[in-house]
Write a protein that binds this DNA or RNA. Sequence first.
DNA 1: CTGAAAGCGCTTACAG
DNA 2: CTGAAAGCGCTTACAG
Lengths: 326, 326
Amino acid sequence: MAREAGVSRGTVSRVLNGGHNVSPTALAAVNAAIRRTGYVVNRHARSLITGRSDSVGFLLTEPQERFFEDPNFSVLLRGCTQALAAHDIPLLLMIAGNEAERRRITRYITGGHVDGVLLVSSHSGNPMAERLAKAQIPVVACGEPLGLGGQIAYVGADERGGARAMVRHLAAGGRRRIATITGPLDTPGGVQRLAGYREELAAAGLPADEALIAESDYSRAGGEAAMTALLRRAPDLDAVFVASDLMAQGALVALEHAGRSVPHDVAVGGFDDSPAALATRPPLTTIRQPFDRISTEMVRLLLARIAGDDPSAVILPTELVRRESS
Amino acid sequence: MAREAGVSRGTVSRVLNGGHNVSPTALAAVNAAIRRTGYVVNRHARSLITGRSDSVGFLLTEPQERFFEDPNFSVLLRGCTQALAAHDIPLLLMIAGNEAERRRITRYITGGHVDGVLLVSSHSGNPMAERLAKAQIPVVACGEPLGLGGQIAYVGADERGGARAMVRHLAAGGRRRIATITGPLDTPGGVQRLAGYREELAAAGLPADEALIAESDYSRAGGEAAMTALLRRAPDLDAVFVASDLMAQGALVALEHAGRSVPHDVAVGGFDDSPAALATRPPLTTIRQPFDRISTEMVRLLLARIAGDDPSAVILPTELVRRESS
DNA sequence: CTGAAAGCGCTTACAG
DNA sequence: CTGAAAGCGCTTACAG
């Protein structure tokens, strides 16, 4: 290659790395030679020197069923792959469903095989975020990692605001006994969406009633079970804000079994605007999470972290999407 | 490391690469030192020598909506990640939704960044398989790549047999006007499942009727549209075999709009046994594709290809799963 | 602005 | 079975 362009290997390398301190003549010669020969740098040789891998990990720490079932993960994964591809950075997919895998993957990551990791998991109790932060690995989480304030960069949606918007919408439709099915209360989404529900109920002058609140697990089956429990505890409910579309799918099944028509008897609101929201009968009114922008921002923050920036947080707005379920 | 174990770097390397030609004493010393220091080989240095990257690509060549919508991809992706993790091989996710991306990724792959690729795409008309094969990249496809017979290893399910089993099941339920919604007829799944439908209809002594056949695109919306068209063309149909669960989800919507009850008026059978099959009302009777085994086999074949084996094909059995839609 | 040289951390013949 | 040595293809001070 150097011979092909009639310059030294050092000059070729300088061209490849930004073209600083290179004369226009040399630059042109090298670029021409690159074009002519289809030369591609050997990433391994480069990484051996620089100590960087020029790749990042997408780490999913969820039990395997969740990944199968919840379309949100695919959406996020695809968005991040795209955003990284624009920088010509490959994404390594890592799935840590249990402690053995978490150990193996931690070893792998701290071994320097990736420059940073995009961490996706609904549960914030999981130990990966902390371990990686301790090992000085640049990490950007999806959603605020509870209890690790400030140590880890993250991108989140305005969960609380979204929840309030949904409850406001249900109340505006004349509903007075508005129930909620929450996500796990050890997850930021679970906590924030419930907080928004409570706030808006108060703002609307509706009484708080713990019988109208059921905690669930973001799964379809969990949503169905929670809805069944709510109907037993509070048969007079006339609306329900379900903290994920997938759980809402389950809730609709329970409502159908109970002979309640949607939205006539019970108005239903979901959260996410995932593909699941279009798969239900009736289609779900829901809160749209801007997954495209979330992925883009996660990648931007991670690249900045890798370049040495301090951790920062980005909160993106959510939006009410009206369909037929309420 | 060599010093730590009191042997030469050559000996350490030999231990790391299988421990051949190493005395038990040296082996023990090296292993102890590894344990003690938490030593991890530098993959880049190793790759620089061996010319291999010790990683493989998972290449998805689908327009982006499909990946969002179709749970089969996630299932496959997860299975392959797991299977590779067992060999400590990272998976690079690559998504080529358009020609520009295909070009970039082809360059990337032929640049030696991965040792082989797992190719997933329903359409066989796409040019990646051929390009990669030409560039001598080990490839294993999911489903038989049409028109590339023998050049490319692949793993598939017994699509035709599955289709036959479903039609047999519908006929056994007393249905006589059995329609079908096919996948795209430039995909192996589209072709094979339709062939199975035709064969079994003939075997059951039921007349063939082209009005009962509608081609679609594996999407939910496509399934809905196709079902609507079928109901118009053949209002007397009493069953429909839909070539994917996602399309069946759409078909159920169309049937509901048309006021046909399932399974009473129309029996519905899907294909895949994807998570979508459990999300419908009623749950779908479907043909189970053994995605777990498919991923495992794809990985096995790819590793064998990389090791120098000739391309081979594996066909896995499918199975009827009875639920409530027929 | 540019070239010669050192060195990144491994693997692999080659002697012994 | 083992060590010394060469070399993989880059990048990066260092002189000039």
